[in-house]
Design a protein around this nucleic acid. Structure first.
Lengths: 225, 225
DNA sequence: CGACAGAGCTGACATTTGTCACCGGGGTGC
DNA sequence: GCACCCCGGTGACAAATGTCAGCTCTGTCG
């Protein structure tokens, strides 16, 4: 949103720990669909002399085109956004905007999301429960080529393991997520109802669920959806 | 968006619309469980001369005890918080802290939540998709005795109508929410399995769902859960 | 090549479920 | 007093679902 007028000179010592001999601030692209939060985060980041938000996006596609145009140093992406989610945007940015590091900030950090994010080349992954200082430090660290993953999320991801589902099982489970009857799932995915039942049964067995609906709930909890 | 630092004197006509002859800022209690968002909102509100955050709470009970101790002018409450949700806190504050107006800020604004909030005496209800200016204006309006409800949410609430479920149906539906089999629901609520099935069948019929799981999904969407 | 795993399908069976009809008790309101 | 609605329950029946065994392809890997 705004930048206070501030002295344009070398970031006068103040709060920001400018790196030795580099007075240029880190240029951040902020993507977050909730207007209020987006503005609030910009205000927060603006308190640091060595960080500057050069662009704000409300959707995934908007974030991507802004990244192409502005070539920021760091893209801070919300996980859930309209059109394109944060991980997809990160993947595209890695491919198209070489100098730009990406990080994900999210409310609902599931183990599965973390894994997908890391394999998409994301360098930082943290929940919105962290403090402002941590956020700023992670931005600096990611910009410097480092990585940061929230310790608790990392522990969960390790203990949770990978998704136990085969690709097909995951497909079927996803279609079952809104409580549709098996017949409808079979039509949508062009399979025999019997096959759908077998997949669902297998999936439920793997996660120790009594029925597919419980299986869906469990899969959601782990971010396997 | 922001208020420039401005002279500290009597808010010189500029952005801060201090009420005639009252230079004292509005004292706000901010309750929000996500640390980062809490800090960011505080930073954002701090940009306004006429608003000051005098306390921050991370949980519902904490918010309540802080409200008792600090007697703020306005309590800005997140809807979903650990221990006690925003509406419960608002209700308690109405009863115990007379001078304090309450408002709810939330990510997931369902019609049902709005209704419950209003009947709990909440004066402002808005989603996190609003802009920072709106937030500040609503704080001022609520403090002045006014009300504000997000227009889109209000429209949804009106068109959605009240929850069609009887109290018992809602109970059973809630227990069915995580995909438990009927037998288990019956045990937890100490009912006969047949009765549970009847309630679920009635509930599904009321919302036009094909089964209880779809009914749960629909009820969630409207905030009836 | 042969073993193996996953995708896709079928059929049979027991269980769970949704649906309906119907019962009684306890409020509430006309 | 009576109608009405919610609560709680029973029994019966049909449909949906979960479970299991077994079948054919296909690709991959040693």
């Amino acid at each position: 949103m705004t930048r206070r007028p501030g002295p344009p000179g070398p970031a006068a010592g103040g709060g920001g720990r400018a790196e030795a001999g580099s007075p240029e601030p880190i240029r951040i692209l902020l993507a977050e669909d909730e207007h209020l939060i987006r503005g609030a985060l910009t205000a927060l980041l603006g308190l640091h002399d060595d960080l500057v938000v050069i662009g704000e996006a409300a959707t995934g596609t908007q974030a991507l085109s802004l990244a192409r145009a502005l070539r920021p140093d760091v893209a801070m992406l919300d996980l859930q956004m309209p059109e394109l989610d944060g991980i997809a945007v990160a993947e595209a940015i890695r491919a198209e905007v070489p100098g730009c590091q990406t990080m994900i900030v999210t409310s609902h950090g599931r183990p599965g999301h973390l894994k997908r994010a890391l394999s998409a080349g994301v360098r930082g992954f943290l929940p919105k429960t962290v403090s402002a200082e941590v956020l700023a430090d992670v931005v600096r660290s990611v910009h410097g080529g480092g990585r940061y993953v929230d310790p608790q999320l990392a522990a969960e991801a390790i203990s949770a393991g990978d998704s136990p589902f085969t690709p097909r099982e995951a497909d079927v489970l996803e279609l079952a997520a809104d409580g549709a009857p098996i017949e409808e799932i079979a039509q949508r995915i062009s399979l025999s109802p019997g096959t759908v039942r077998n997949y669902l049964s297998a999936a439920a067995g793997k996660v120790g669920a009594a029925n597919r609906h419980e299986a869906v709930a469990i899969a959601r909890r782990y971010g396997w959806l």
